[in-house]
């Protein structure tokens, strides 16, 4: 059990800023770890607290809301 802990992180990214930034990172060929799973939302304000809890319930180790 010497494997390094690699958390699964669910990311809710706002279409107009954070998602665009992630997209730009991709276009610019910056690499980011694959354990970050991005879900695009039209506004980070639409992220209900229950989305965060549900992510954790279904096995996410962390949740990032970016907007």
């Amino acid at each position: 059990m010497n494997e390094e802990f690699s958390p699964n992180i669910v990311t809710f990214a706002c279409n107009w800023c954070a998602y665009a930034a992630a997209d730009l990172a991709g276009v610019s060929r910056f690499q980011y770890p694959p354990n970050l799973r991005i879900i695009r939302v039209m506004c980070s304000g639409q992220v209900n607290p229950n989305f965060i809890l549900k992510s954790l319930e279904q096995g996410a180790d962390g949740v990032l809301v970016a907007g």
């Binding site: 209900n48 607290p49 229950n50 809890l53 549900k54 319930e57």
Partner: peptide
């Protein structure tokens, strides 16, 4: 409440 109490 969007099911938040059931998730909790």
């Amino acid at each position: 409440h969007h099911g938040i109490l059931q998730t909790l």
